[in-house]
């Protein structure tokens, strides 16, 4: 809700986009997952009111849509930060000490397992099962870019560099 309001100036446009997504999929209940994927690409997460809108438009009970959205780890029901930090905890990264990196990141950004996003909505810290870059273990991916052979110090350094590059008003 908060981010929806933050985006309110172009809300009519957002709703038009949402309608376009629904139309593109013929408003078919069977296409719920591709619709949710497209919606998440648009909003970066699945806001409750958007899910309700989708449920009504498809003629599905909201609890059904919620069930699908919460089943898949890919879908996020909470807003994510501007930078999504994905720490790989696959076997290769794990044996190369990925967990101390996770602890350092969480410690530095004041987030935890339950609250993954910083209060200023800048960073979200998540773990993933494998990024397919085992030769470079341990790896951290920030907004799609892979950073190899990480250490707790190097990871924190990356965060600080991003912070410095951000305009002060953020």
């Amino acid at each position: 809700m908060t981010t929806m309001q933050a985006r309110s100036p172009d809300r009519a446009e957002q709703l038009a986009t949402l309608r376009a997504i629904l139309e593109r999929h013929g408003r078919q209940p069977a296409k719920l997952i591709p619709i949710l994927q497209a919606v998440q690409d648009e909003y970066r997460y699945l806001p409750e009111e958007v899910l309700s809108y989708v449920a009504t438009a498809l003629g599905l009970p909201p609890a059904h849509v919620y069930g699908v959205a919460t089943f898949y780890a890919y879908f996020a029901l909470e807003p994510k930060g501007k930078y999504v930090v994905r720490l790989c905890d696959g076997t290769a990264c794990h044996v190369k000490n990925s967990l101390p990196i996770l602890d350092a990141l969480r410690d530095h950004l004041q987030v935890d397992e339950e609250h993954k996003t910083t209060a200023d909505m800048q960073f979200t810290v998540e773990t993933v099962a494998c990024l397919g870059a085992c030769g470079l273990a341990p790896v951290v991916m920030i907004n799609g870019q892979v950073h190899s052979r990480m250490t707790p110090e190097a990871a924190v350094q990356l965060i600080e560099e991003i912070r410095k590059s951000e305009p002060a008003e953020a």
Binding site: L60, P61, A63, H64, Y66, G67, T70, F71, Y72, A73
Partner: peptide, 8 residues
């Protein structure tokens, strides 16, 4: 369908 399975 007021209730359904959620999460995994």
């Amino acid at each position: 369908g007021a209730i359904n399975f959620a999460h995994r």
